[in-house]
Each structure stands twice: as C-alpha cells, then as structure tokens.
Simulated assay, not measured.
Amino acid sequence: MLLTDIAVEHTLVSKQTGVRQTFLLHPFTDTQRDSLGKFEVVRDVREPGLKEGKRSTFVTFQQLAELYAKGTLDEFGFSVRMCPAQGTYPAKNPAKKILPASIRPGSPFEMAVQQVDVSKPASRELRTALLRTHVKL
C-alpha cells in the first residue's frame, strides 16, 4: 500500500548516460511477514564502537504519525523508504526525509499527526522498534 498523503519529488541521474529522471515518491508498506503493512524508517548510525552504516526498523501508520508529530524523525535524522506510484524505480528504493510541505493538507495522515498527544510517552512497541536504530525515547 502506498501512503499517497505524502509525496516527495526525487531526481535520479544515471551514472552511465547522465540522463535525469524525476520520480514522485511515496512511503509504502512492506510485504514481508514480520513487517507486513508497516513503513520502513531508516537512520544513519555513526556511534563509537559500532560499524558505521544504516539502521532501519518498521513502524505502523499511527507510529509514523507519532514520530512525525513528536519531531523524532527530524531530531534523530530518520528518513522513510519511498517508491514511485507509477512504474518501477531503477535502483534500490531511496529513503527520503518527510518535510511538512510533503504532506497533503487535510489528508488522513495529517489528521493522524494532529491527533497525537505529544505529552504522552511513546508506546512500548514504538520504543522497542526504535531500539534497532539505536534511539531511546
């Protein structure tokens, strides 16, 4: 399932030919067993004693809205794995940052973000999921 409430434009330049392709990307839910119906959030990890690289975890629609509402995506440098609505992406689907301008006004996702009570702590499931990315809430 695509979350079309969020749309980010992305330009890919071919290394071989130099041809530029522009894609309109949306977050999508995974189709694998354990992460079925969840969105992938990705974070670059550069911590002492750990191998430098990317760490990711999967979150539900409501958890994604909560992360966005609380500013966690921006604070910890998270991106969301995206794919085009039409056609296929020629490489691995990129992870992009979600800016407020990327969210369609009045959409169900924007409503879910507005309904989050930011004064409440994150749920146990969300905190557990974020531990994979070395983030403690």
Rank of each mutant, 00 (worst) to 15 (best):
V19F: 08
V19R: 14
V19L: 12
R20M: 09
Q21W: 00
L25W: 05
L25A: 10
P27E: 09
F28N: 05
R33M: 03
D34P: 01
S35N: 14
L36W: 10
E40Q: 11
V41P: 01
V42L: 03
R46C: 07
G49I: 09
G49M: 13
K51I: 10
K54F: 08
K54H: 09
S56Q: 05
F58P: 02
Q63P: 03
K70C: 14
T72R: 00
T72W: 02
T72I: 15
L73D: 04
V80D: 06
R81T: 12
R81L: 14
M82H: 01
M82N: 06
P84L: 12
P84V: 12
P84A: 10
A85Y: 04
G87N: 07
G87T: 11
G87W: 09
G87C: 14
T88I: 11
T88Y: 02
P90C: 12
A91H: 01
K92S: 13
N93D: 06
A95Q: 02
K96A: 12
K97C: 03
K97P: 00
L99H: 12
P100E: 07
R104K: 15
P105I: 13
S107Y: 11
F109G: 13
F109N: 08
E110Q: 15
A112P: 08
Q114W: 06
Q115W: 08
D117I: 13
V118D: 05
S119R: 11
A122R: 11
A122V: 15
A122E: 10
